[in-house]
Each structure stands twice: as C-alpha cells, then as structure tokens.
Amino acid sequence: MRLGVLDVGSNTVHFLVVDAHPGAAPLPAYSHKAELRLAELLDAQGAISEAGIELLIGMIASSIRVAEDKGVVDLLPFATSAVREAANGEAVLKRVQDETGIELQVLSGEEEARLTFLAVRRWFGWSSGRLLDLDIGGGSLEIACGLDEQPDAAFSLPLGAGRLTAGWLPDEVADPERLRDLRRHIRAEIAGVVGEVARLGPPDHAVATSKTFKQLARMTGAAPAEAGLLVTRRLTRSGLSAWVPRLSAMTVAERARIPGVSEGRAKQLLAGALVADAAMDLFGLDELDICPWALREGIILRRLDTLAAQNG
C-alpha cells in the first residue's frame, strides 16, 4: 500500500511517498519537498504572511499531483508548531481546505513528542530499555522518555531552531550579549522539565532525531546521508561543545561552508547547537545516537497499527 505523508513543518514542507504494510518497516519511495521556513515567515503579529500562505497552498497542490502520479491511495496530512502557533493558524487551515480540499491535522507538541517516540522505539527496539528522545524542530524542542511504545513523559518547549533564530539571532554574526541571553533562556526552559524526566530514572539509551541533530552529528564527523540509514551516527558532547564557541564566532556564510550544513540551515545552526548543548548538559548525556526515523514514520506506524486493528 502506498501512503503519502504530507508534513507541514516549521522549516520544510515534505511530502513523502512510502510503501507501507502492517508488520513491515515503511520503505520510502519518493520525496517531494520545499523549504518554506514558515516559522521565519511570520509578520509582526505572529501570523503567517500572505506570501507564506500562497507558498504553502502551492506546495500542497503540487504534492497532490505527485500523489496521483505515484499511485498514493491514502494521504496523511499534518502540521506542527508553525501552524499550531501562528496567530492566524485557524484561517490558514481553512484557506488550505478551501483551495486544495486537504484537511491538515494539527498535532499538539505533546502528540508530536509521543509519535516521534513511537518511531524511535520501533527503530531501536526493546533492547534500548528506557529510551530518551530529543528532537529539535524549526518551531519546538520535543522531549520524550519511557520504557514502552508510549512515553511515560512527553514535553514540547518553544525552543525550535528556526523560532529562536528569528527571535534572537537575526544578524549575520551573533551579538555576544544576545547570545548569552538566549543561552540563559534555553537553559531555563529545559531545566523546567528536567526533574519530570529524571524522576523516571536514568535512560538506558539516549537518542536524537531531527535534521538539526543530524547536521550537528555530521559536523562533528558522523557519516554523511549517502552512507545510508543503517550506519551508526553519534553526537558526542565533547564534539559538540568544541563547536559551540566556533559557531558563535562564524558568519552565516562561513557556517554554510561546513561539510554537511545546507545553505538553508546555516542560519539556524547556532541556535540548534545551543539547544542541543544545553539539553545534553542538563540531562547529563555524553552521547546521543541519531535515529533516522522520527515524526513522519511515527504517523505512518500509528496509521498501520490502526489498520491492522480494524482488519484483525
């Protein structure tokens, strides 16, 4: 069965065509994506601008065409932080539905964390014991921890790399004062939930998902995307903390020259590194294994589970 997952994220709108069956690992077949960076296209009132809405509708319309071309039988359209937190989120959803017929499901931050956790659990399996997953999106940081397929604790904090960059680090080179304020802000937010996670006991396996974590791992020497999904990629705290002061002093253009950093992401890289560094420090994690599956896979897996339950 061919499923199409339409993921309206804060950085990227990604339409992924996947061959999926209950009991099988979802196999990606075709990818269609656009970097719209909705979290950065907000106007003064915190609403997604008209230009942003038009781009979004255009992207959804082209995704529907791809879905038809590729023989997709079931569409799973969802949106996360950018639409969830936009001042005009409701109006955007209505426009999308009126013009394309697509009803975007808006996930809450906690649902996002839970579905990502499900994907991480299925990827690493039960041998991981108590799992902790961190995910730095464009709009929010998701944290989930637990022993089962459903996490025992799941949090979403407004610490997405795109959001923080737009709000705190808009310049070519970061202002040291602002940087320190931002660092304090990030650490205060994360510290607020550390206790809730710590009371569950220390994790047996700490994992990271998201493009931001993948790029940070690549920057510190992990395998590039071409090496495939099955190679182990790891982000170490020592590797990351050596990079934070370096990134702080670099211009956006210089960051874009680091191997593995895409031009579109270079601007957000510093904020993402600050969040990752703070989270590893405050949760006491020396290393994080990168998991290639995340929210999209979680949504597919949950869909397959409900199909199996209906047919069984």
Partner: peptide, 8 residues
Amino acid sequence: LRTTDRLV
C-alpha cells in the same frame, strides 16, 4: 515555489 524531488 522551489521544490526538490528525489526517487528514494
């Protein structure tokens, strides 16, 4: 609108 397409 700029999109990237890739056969996986």
